[in-house]
Design a protein around this nucleic acid. Structure first.
Lengths: 113, 113
DNA sequence: AAAACTTGTTTGCGATCGCTTACAATAGGG
DNA sequence: CCCTATTGTAAGCGATCGCAAACAAGTTTT
């Protein structure tokens, strides 16, 4: 998956978080931010801080790689062929990034922040 | 090149900018930000806004891709094998991302912002 | 060497962020 | 249907950002 806009990352984080059975508060706790921030960020908040963004990605074990796109005629990059396939949001639930669902899902409790 | 910390992006942007013969003010102009911001960002500013960061990458034609790193035993990802090789900072000057040097370098003038 | 250019850093301030708290809306299950 | 859980949104405020302008320091060119 290619990242061009803040919403690309936000969507990706949301899909990954849900696939892992975490709610926004869970992720917020892990990142040391408020639930509000997670909600805004997932919604594509342009002004999200870079360190928090990278921390969120790290927490969800999403790796970012940078590539040179140095010629206009190769501006539409072919997805890298790799055993580690790029993330496709629609694919996440299908492939089931949810081996941790039982471990990650806390007991039902009503907690609000 | 893998992006884990703000400084990773900052270093990358600096190297790419220099390889293209742009100074900080040039890039700032293109991004619609102050030179101060570019300087801070290149220095690894944790709180840089995501939209500005992505705009900088886009302006320098650096593509970001996201990958799932979903198992601890594959936490050290092999670089994707691709005709579009990942960016290595030390490699930039050697490979010469500078075909635009003449076009991009403005006439000498003393201008400060 | 001097001049010109570029980068690094600082100050003060208006603009904006991220927070808490709370309510509205939505989703899921019995 | 009801209930619970989760997400979306808003208001007000202290904290922080990004700015312009300027100077210091470093680098490159003449």
């Amino acid at each position: 998956m290619f990242i061009r806009r803040p919403a690309d990352i936000g969507d990706l984080v949301r899909a990954t978080r849900q696939a892992r059975g975490l709610n926004q508060q869970d992720l917020a706790d892990r990142l040391g931010v408020s639930r509000w921030w997670v909600n805004e960020f997932e919604g594509g908040k342009p002004t999200a801080r870079l360190d928090l963004v990278l921390r969120a990605l790290n927490e969800l074990q999403i790796t970012l790689a940078a590539y040179a796109g140095d010629d206009a005629e190769t501006a539409a990059p072919a997805p890298p062929a790799s055993s580690r396939s790029p993330i496709d949001i629609d694919d996440i639930a299908d492939r089931g990034l949810a081996p941790r669902t039982e471990a990650a899902r806390p007991a039902r409790k009503r907690r609000r922040r």
